[in-house]
Design a protein around this nucleic acid. Structure first.
Lengths: 353, 353
DNA sequence: CTGTTAGCGCATTCAT
DNA sequence: ATGAATGCGCTAACAG
């Protein structure tokens, strides 16, 4: 075999393109990245690129420029519709600017989260989006900022360089509670996530405010907070629903809480809304398709993702600071069929079976 | 500017470590990657690393070695529980070997899929996992293989270098259909995905086989196939259920199909299983929590992800070929309360309202 | 066992 | 406007 058409099997490099186009590598680089190139040279280079099927080696480029074209998204658990929907929205938006998305699950474990972030940084992501967690993002933001990596946090506290995208959980829960109050409920239970989460704190706050608004004190003994597992939710639901004087209404303050609670409701053969009025937070397939359809505090998850993605992109690409350092996502109470006035108000004829 | 004590703010490099440990960079590299190093030198290097807070620059490493430590997962839509659960399983497994996961959504669009894969390759992923799609993976496998990138495909055809993880859709659907047949149903409808998908073809095949088994011909006019959208499912359900002689049982051959069908069932005020027996494919929150709970053909999604991840890792790390080039995932019929004998067999007393 | 050296492919400076 | 040269940080091949 003569060194005939014996090309190197490796992908063509910028040098190959330069040779073929009879120009220097600098010129090729310039047409690629938009420098000053004469029309003639530019044309020749472009043709060479086409003929060779050349594509810039991203590893070399990222070594040279320090930018990778990737963004890391640290979720609690991608299996949660909240995060998978966000992930999709983020990815859709990121695509517009040519970024790719790296994901991970931290399972609400601060140690794991830091480890994941470390690995993201290690992979030299250009930006970071952090899902809610039990911990402040302070340490992580600091760590990332030290490397010049911008971070956007979702529903959690974070020091200044970070951009925050916050949901109006207080108002949302206040609306839900008020709705139940207006229906005549007084003994309303709230099963939600730990106050270690901003969302947990805020939801409890909104719950209390709704009662305060009416000059009443919230039933503190009906507030149960725990971690983000169905397991916790199930225990909480048993405690709440299976006791001697069950509440007339229950608000589930997170999707996993609802999913852990429903089986208990089924097992106890409680009818909704006959025996129990039910409200959940975040609208998912289950809340829409369950019969009766479940009333929820909805927020636009897709928009949250879009905004977060948009923010990182601006932070990464932009030369100047972003307009906003904090975004607020509103909520909306979607009334469906899972709530009714409490039995006591419907007369003593018993359950409407 | 004078080269004062002006330390570079940049992260410490292998050279810094070498100097501090009074060894050559080669030695540092060796302790990092496991070469032959004396205990003494090794100790000193490790200390220097700790003191400097050194972390190898992954961009340089990937340029040098051609390996990135990332795997790309191309899904149809990460929002589908099927894929989010897979993604989580894949990621969990990948983590064990230090890989990170890049995800994307192709929305069943072959053009988009190729574009996503191109970008994955561009990002120099070490391996590729492809979710099911309307197209054979031939072209993509070829493209990836040319770059030495191994690919694992899920529920789709692919030429040899690729590893396939296939679900036993034929048997699964056959079991489901047989179950309905045994219950006494004859007029069974199947709403499933296009035959352009392997899963679509196989599900129809299983459906037919169950009838053939009994010496009957499958009701071909009751088979509707379309794309993976709720929209299609809704139209199909309307066509099937709202006509003059609705079937007595319906099998939904994919999660989006079920989700698009349920609203039609609700609107038509059909009772399950009174008016219609219902079976779905893939067990999700909705099938478990819906009342009545929905009978499903289940497969272990988590295991599919685990196997796929394990396979890529072996392909990437391994020097030798993997043991298997194809895996088969079994299915299981989970009987719940959404099916009953057809009305005709339960006597003429009409609906049990 | 160890230090030195040569690139990996690219963007970028510097002369021209 | 452009070609040549430099080095990003690392690994691997080499010579000791």
């Amino acid at each position: 075999m003569k060194p005939d058409s014996d090309k190197k099997p490796g992908a063509p490099t910028i040098k190959d393109v330069a040779e073929r186009a009879c120009v220097g590598v600098g010129t090729v680089s310039r047409v690629l990245n938009g420098g000053n190139v004469s029309a003639r040279a530019s044309l020749r280079v472009e043709q060479a690129i086409r003929e060779l099927g050349y594509s810039p080696n991203s590893s070399a480029r990222r070594l040279r420029t320090g930018r990778s074209g990737t963004i890391g998204f640290c979720t609690r658990d991608i299996t949660n519709p909240l995060f998978s929907v966000m992930a999709r929205a983020i990815q859709d938006r990121l695509e517009e600017d040519g970024f790719m998305l790296l994901v991970s699950n931290a399972f609400d474990d601060p140690v794991r989260e830091r480890e994941m972030v470390r690995r993201f940084i290690d992979q030299s992501v250009d930006g970071l989006i952090l899902g809610p967690s039990t911990e402040d993002a302070g340490q992580i933001v600091e760590q990332a900022t030290a490397q010049g990596i911008p971070v956007v946090v979702l529903d959690r506290e974070a020091p200044e360089p970070a951009v925050r995208v916050m949901s109006e959980h207080i108002v949302g829960m206040q609306d839900a509670t008020r709705y139940l109050l207006d229906l005549g409920h007084r003994d309303i239970a709230l099963s939600t996530i730990s106050s270690a989460h901003l969302a947990g704190r805020n939801r409890v706050e909104g719950f209390r405010r709704a009662f305060a608004e009416r000059g009443m004190a919230a039933p503190e003994h009906r507030i149960i907070q725990g971690d983000f597992t169905r397991d916790f939710a199930q225990k909480a639901a048993r405690h709440l629903l299976l006791g001697p004087n069950p509440p007339t209404a229950l608000i589930c303050g997170a999707t996993p809480i609802l999913l852990g609670t429903l089986p208990v409701i089924h097992a106890a053969e409680l009818s909704i809304p006959g025996d129990l009025s039910l409200v959940s937070c975040d609208d998912i397939d289950v809340t829409q398709l369950y019969r009766p359809a479940i009333t929820v505090v909805r927020r636009d998850i897709h928009e949250i993702g879009r905004i977060a993605a948009q923010a990182v992109v601006e932070l990464v690409d932009g030369t100047d600071m972003p307009e906003h350092t904090s975004f607020s996502i509103s909520t909306e109470l979607v009334v469906r069929n899972s709530c009714a006035p409490p039995e006591t108000l419907r007369g003593p004829q018993g359950r409407a079976n």
